[in-house]
Write a protein that binds this DNA or RNA. Structure first.
Lengths: 127, 127
DNA sequence: CGTAACCTTTACGTTAACGTAAACTATTAC
DNA sequence: GTAATAGTTTACGTTAACGTAAAGGTTACG
């Protein structure tokens, strides 16, 4: 099964320009038909999905590119494996920190929220 | 205690341009000396810190502006209170979703990480 | 077979969030 | 008092991640 560019655009609710832009950046390389139209395979679709997921986590295209090529390269050699592991370690660390910070922020917001609700109830009670 | 613009720039490791830009956007309004130099109070410092925290959570300056003015306005009226509560509710929801997604991503990364480590150990074992 | 809907490339436009430079004034250090 | 350092405004430059438009080929349909 293959897809046209607008098929994917609709599926992921993004513009065709965006998809072409990712190609400009070297993140996807779909096959071409005889006339030159882009043909996306299941694999290409998955790749696009991966990119979009990265975006949702606020990774820049540069970072996404980095991650993709890293995991795409030949992972058989020991050196490559070690590099991948180190990279993954770092990303996990970053994520952990960010999650903790967001959790803290959320708790603060919840306190504020409770505060405001209390104030509102005070007002309601005085009616 | 007051601060000059470069005092704050050093404290938070940002440029003076950045601080002036926040002022352009109306996010801070420091006092001025007779000669026109910016004088930042403790309150201004706190405000700046707030902005930077927002940035760390990937909020845009527009969102930060929104939040600040919302919490700055008169919160005494019932309508205002309700608005604030609704806004907070929404932000908490957004945060919750994002945290969950990041948590999921982290777990995936950890699995991958374990995978690669195993492979590396296989190689080491064969030596 | 015409035409609407879709595809292509090329290229200039846009927005956020600053960076950088110029031209000038104020403060601080000796 | 004179450098050096720091501050001010004005204004143009920059980067990422697309948006938009033009000018033209392609495919699908009635």
């Amino acid at each position: 099964m293959t897809y046209s560019i607008s098929d994917l655009a609709k599926q992921f609710d993004i513009s065709t320009r965006t998809i072409r832009y990712y190609e400009e950046r070297g993140l996807i390389e779909p096959k071409r038909s005889a006339s030159g139209q882009r043909i996306y395979s299941k694999k290409d679709r998955t790749r696009l999905q991966l990119i979009l997921r990265g975006k949702r986590f606020n990774f820049s295209l540069e970072e996404i590119e980095e991650m993709i090529t890293l995991f795409d390269e030949d992972r058989s050699g020991r050196k490559q494996l070690e590099k991948t592991i180190r990279y993954g370690d770092q990303k996990i660390q970053e994520l952990t920190t960010q999650i903790e910070e967001m959790q803290a922020l959320k708790e603060e917001l919840e306190e504020l929220h409770a505060d405001f609700k209390e104030r509102l109830q005070d007002i309601e009670a005085k009616k």
